[in-house]
Design a protein around this nucleic acid. Structure first.
Lengths: 212, 212
DNA sequence: TTTAAATACACCCAAATTGGGTGAGATTCG
DNA sequence: CGAATCTCACCCAATTTGGGTGTATTTAAA
């Protein structure tokens, strides 16, 4: 008696490990209101069918044969932007987390979680949240914070900040109500401290070390 | 018999509403392992004492008489970086969230939560997490994602991306294995599409509209 | 299949920007 | 006090930038 399919949360899985995938299918289908509509072991097959499957939530692995999960997220978001994608992976690599989020993931779980967390996460993302493992959340929040051991003075940081927004020396001078020559001095000192010789290098190093 | 003070989580409150503040004190002190070491109704007093209080966790309001919470977080992090600061506020404003995180907040809760969530949040941040209300987490994750309705082509986006990293036309040309003149053409088209006439304007608009 | 968009390249020109050098007065903070 | 920071000045040459106009090939949509 499934006379309320409209309220079902339709779930799609992309996971190459058969044991894990089948485990997830069983776990999720046990839950009231969940329906696993499809399960793939690679991105290519998933992408072919996502428009027909019309999932509300996709649980996606990153390490996959063929196309990787990041690429998969990007493409899926293009052809069916409606789906909320949660990454489920063993990788806790910083880079991968941010790449996944930039690609369009709405959540990120590491596989060392109690399986019940998966169920919560799906409810969470459907009610406007962004489920993340604790360590992932910390990574994400930390990405907003600046390096406390910056070699740059606060004025220099201010100048570099504006430089990184594409402003010219004159622009910066106007913005800070100082002379263009003073800006030049600050920039010379910034270059000396960061051991670089150009705008691009300075910005690159500053971004990398979270000075701005 | 408190012969294990070292394992106690020391909590400090900064909240100007007396009712709420006293409520939090009682709620938290009821919990095993929690100890509210101090409670202030403004940032100034908090900052004077934070070094003596040595809190593990600070629950901080944003809207405060005198110095606001953002400024308070920044200063507290400078004089006592060890403390984990969780913002507890009614404001859900995008800007405020990111300012708080940039200033050094390690968590962000909105006041429309069950009070038990506060207890969980403190345990969460002490075990390496970053507690956030569902809607805040969504905001944070969404901040990594790009605008899907960009007027720019993918190549143009690529060029603007590199431009925003301070690269010169020649740098960009090298990086993309195309001629400098081609880069110039792309940039002219970018300026036309974004209705701007300079690098700085283009980057500003692109950032604002999340095109890069 | 015709059209429009995207991608790539070329040459002209003048103004602005950038990076490097050197020096120097004022202020602030430990 | 002294080191660091912040401010401004002048010299110089190479590079960059923004605007103009024109062309050709490829790709995607109508």
């Amino acid at each position: 008696m499934s006379y309320q399919n409209t309220n079902l949360i339709k779930i799609c899985l992309v996971e190459d490990d058969n044991i894990i995938r089948e485990g997830f299918v069983m776990l999720l289908n046990e839950n009231q209101g969940f329906k696993v509509v499809s399960a793939y072991n690679n991105c290519e097959d998933f992408l072919k069918n996502v428009q027909n499957d019309k999932p509300n939530v996709v649980l996606m692995d990153i390490e996959l044969p063929g196309m990787n999960g990041i690429e998969g997220i990007e493409r899926a978001k293009k052809i069916y932007p409606h789906a909320q994608i949660i990454v489920v992976t063993v990788y806790e690599n910083d880079d991968l987390v941010f790449k996944a989020l930039c690609a369009g993931a709405g959540g990120y779980l590491t596989k060392n979680m109690p399986s019940q967390r998966l169920v919560e996460a799906i409810r969470e993302i459907m009610s406007g949240g962004a489920p993340m493992s604790t360590n992932i959340a910390r990574l994400v929040v930390a990405s907003f914070q600046k390096n406390h051991n910056s070699p740059l003075s606060s004025r220099e940081t201010e100048v570099l900040e504006l430089l990184s927004r594409g402003k010219s020396y004159s622009n910066i001078a106007e913005g800070l109500f100082i002379d263009k020559e003073t800006v030049r001095t600050h920039i010379k000192n910034i270059y000396w401290k960061l051991e670089v010789h150009s705008k691009a290098e300075a910005i690159e190093k500053a971004m990398k070390e979270k000075l701005i």
